[in-house]
Design a protein around this nucleic acid. Structure first.
Length: 268
DNA sequence: CGAGGTACCTGACAGC
DNA sequence: TGCTGTCAGGTACCTC
């Protein structure tokens, strides 16, 4: 499940391979996933690649952008020109980008929830306006986090952490792990949580995300980054676990249609 | 405002 | 073998 750390890993790898190259052609195999409007912006030079929450942005020349969301099963394969493209997975290929170097970038989508489209500066600004702050941004301080939380005293803490309008990048796995580390019950409303615990949540969330990036993300189900798989799944404490680190039984509940795993003993 | 549900999708897996 | 049901889940959109 690509969340912030997984997307960050993909962005770093894409950057090292693609920046400076020019997209000269695109083959669209799945029009649901890859917008056909992309054809109109080609050729396009890739100036830079960045991440906003879970969105990947390819910054192209002439103030154009290629926007990608990996959802659950989106995956890029980079095929250097010396490699035979037929040796790479042919299944679930939604689009193939041809680069001026002779290399290829394929985008594979299993569940077809994934999206790639092009946009201009206006569309790009509109996308960003919908997103909350990035929890790893330098200017994202505890007072900032606290003031955001205070605007939703009645909201459920776990659901709010996953709300991209509130905070951009945190998904189901890292929301649960952060709450476990901060010893906060996922059923609590924001106003019920003590200020010291909120402070703890702030710092633990940032540490957690940074550690996951250092491990190239978490690999569960289908996620793999371009150059292999991350290994942060070995450091998860509650997600899909039977027992917590103190051997208490983990409980699974459903919140907003999503599984939440937590320890009723450690997370009062 | 917030909670809950549904739709979008396909594959993995359990159970009969 | 082959079917059915459940689960995985990010986001948009709807209702209460």
């Amino acid at each position: 499940m690509p969340e912030l750390p997984e997307v960050e890993t993909v962005v770093r790898q894409l950057s090292s391979k693609l920046v400076g190259q020019k997209i000269v052609k695109i083959d669209i195999r799945d029009h649901l996933v890859v917008s056909s409007t992309i054809k109109k912006i080609i050729p396009a030079k890739i100036l830079g690649i960045s991440r906003y929450g879970k969105w990947i942005i390819l910054n192209l020349d002439q103030h154009r952008y290629l926007v990608i969301h990996l959802r659950m099963t989106g995956h890029f394969y980079y095929i250097p020109k010396e490699n035979n493209p037929s040796l790479f997975p042919q299944k679930y290929v939604a689009g193939i980008f041809h680069l001026d170097s002779g290399s290829h970038l394929t985008f594979n989508s299993i569940r077809r929830f994934e999206r790639i489209f092009s946009t201009n500066q206006k569309g790009f600004a509109k996308l960003l306006a919908k997103l909350g702050p990035d929890p790893l941004a330098e200017n994202f301080t505890f007072p900032h986090f606290n003031s955001l939380l205070n605007r939703f005293p009645h909201a459920n803490i776990k659901t709010k952490l996953m709300d991209q309008h509130f905070l951009a990048g945190v998904g189901n796995i890292y929301a649960q792990e952060a709450l476990y580390r901060a010893k906060i019950n996922p059923l609590q409303r924001i106003q019920e949580i003590s200020p010291p615990k909120l402070k703890q949540l702030y710092s633990t969330l940032r540490t957690l995300l940074q550690q996951a990036i250092d491990h190239n993300g978490t690999t569960v189900h289908n996620f793999a980054h371009i150059d292999g798989k991350g290994d942060f799944q070995n450091f998860l404490a509650v997600y899909q676990k039977d027992k917590c680190q103190k051997s208490h039984l983990i409980t699974r509940i459903v919140q907003a249609g999503r599984s939440t795993y937590y320890c009723p003993v450690c997370q009062k």
